[in-house]
Write a protein that binds this DNA or RNA. Sequence first.
DNA 1: GTGAAAGCGCTAACAG
DNA 2: CTGTTAGCGCTTTCAC
Lengths: 353, 353
Amino acid sequence: MASIRDVAREAKVSVTTVSRVLNDSGAVTDVTRRRVERAIRQLAYRPNPSARALRSNRTNLIALIIPEMVNPYFSAIAQGVQDVARRAGFHLILCNSGGEQSLELDYLEMVPHKHVDGCIITPPGPNSNPAADSRLLQLGRLGYPFVSLGRQLDTPELCFDFITTDTAVGTQEAMRHLLENGHTRIAYFGGPENVASTRLQGYRGALSARGLVVQRELIFSTDLTLEAGYRLGELILRCPDPPTAILAVNDMVAIGAVLALQEHGVRIPEQVSVVGFDDIPLASIIRPNLTTVAQPKYDLGRLAAERLVFRLQGGIGKFETISLSAHLIVRESTRSIFGDSRHLVADRRPCTP
Amino acid sequence: MASIRDVAREAKVSVTTVSRVLNDSGAVTDVTRRRVERAIRQLAYRPNPSARALRSNRTNLIALIIPEMVNPYFSAIAQGVQDVARRAGFHLILCNSGGEQSLELDYLEMVPHKHVDGCIITPPGPNSNPAADSRLLQLGRLGYPFVSLGRQLDTPELCFDFITTDTAVGTQEAMRHLLENGHTRIAYFGGPENVASTRLQGYRGALSARGLVVQRELIFSTDLTLEAGYRLGELILRCPDPPTAILAVNDMVAIGAVLALQEHGVRIPEQVSVVGFDDIPLASIIRPNLTTVAQPKYDLGRLAAERLVFRLQGGIGKFETISLSAHLIVRESTRSIFGDSRHLVADRRPCTP
DNA sequence: GTGAAAGCGCTAACAG
DNA sequence: CTGTTAGCGCTTTCAC
């Protein structure tokens, strides 16, 4: 491989001049510049990244720590990060922790040890790795550039940017969508409290905002499986005054409900509208395609990378907590209540399990 | 950050000695070694990767070029590569070409330009990027370490390892599974010729091997969508002598068929067994879980990485074409024909479209 | 068994 | 505007 010296010799200038041309630093005559550029082309010269890194203390590498790749959520994030990183001239080092705590901790050290310039970390879940959390805080305070994606840390002072999803907005959109389409009896198929609290809040809030009363008997608790959704779907059928729409805590539950209703001859969305959450790939496969609130996975990654790149390029300013809104994707499983469609007919059986 | 000099000073030895300890090269007294190790620990010293790379011409980085991340096939490969790479002390640089030809070509240059030590490349499809193919060949001949994953190159001499999937084996397994369970009337829902030729061969071969005659009217051509499978599923119902089993060219087609049959009251697998291909995530979600031939995605990545690491660690030997077999995963959608189950009753309508 | 010193390819004072 | 030179942190002769 040609080195900067070869280029200098070829162009009959000093290495400094070549370096100047390469980095657009210092002033160089147009004539000289041209000569150098020609030499670079002729020798197909590219600066050696290791030498550059050694000298300038910047590797042009960023690390992305995720628990696993084979998961649409994380791979979409990775895609977002990669796209931004590449455009900014950084390469992406992919670090799969596999949920292993010590590995995650190790990867963090890539930043202080000059393996990479900065790092984006997405934890498997909240509080999944206290040791890593504390080390992250430590490194952040030391000024190392990190961006945390979804790892909420209880700390007064922020020492890195923090990106997260706000599902409340999406929930509100979903509710507005349903309400505007005339639905007032909207069931909520919620998950265990912790996961779904924001969503339940959104559900309640949207109803109240319209002056509608929140009906306890339309709020169901469930786990997050297809089966659970299926069971609730069947349950709904026996309501004295059945809902015309369902808002589910996630797509699996929503799909379970759809399947149950369909098997009992209920047409979706003509008779019941269904909204899911997450936008898993399956959501756009099943018939009818599921209207759902999508996590902005790709944008989460994109934004995280943008913040990191900003820092790495010398950007300053306060660290922020940035919350991206989950947004509604309207597909086929929801429809206006107005129209010629027949809705579920009430029968006299009780609605509670 | 502490440098090797700091360690040397702390341990009261020369940097040479520290380097020897770090690399297990040259002889060092146990006493000295211990002293050095203690100093390393005390200073939390870690060698600077850039300096190392510059000096030794090895970055300990490998690149993985894939078309996209948000695709279970490629992310599983990436996971396999990453796992092996990490264990061998390499970091993984993730290169998303997004199918862009020039980008793919660029990424190739990371190897000769010392960005990475070696590279694994998975193309979007056969012949998708002739320019990259030719450059790859060129670089391979120059001795740069590459592994190609599924990019079949028509070239007499192999200049890198080539990993691919052999779907014939999987097809044979699927057929044996069906045959051993008593199925003899097995329909083949095949795709366009190019994709499915090996599979169709496997289908034919397995039947012939059992002395069964290949019945033309049981072989269907289709595109690779759910809808296509659905239509074929309906078609099957009208066969005069309907099949007791279906082998589909991929999971989507298989699932389409399952849905069609179920909607017409046919029970799977009691009345018809169905086998898919690929093992997409959906395959283990739908009821019944789909028996399918799985591409060894993860192992493909693992193997590619192993070959590359082997080369990078100085391993020599002929370049090889390694073919990994796709294997059958038996789930719920297939069942023995023997037993008390009632199979599809023939009616008199014609079977052809 | 240990150390001195050269130099990998590059950038950045500093001098002219 | 251009060149000389030191040195980033490390490995590796070569000498002792």
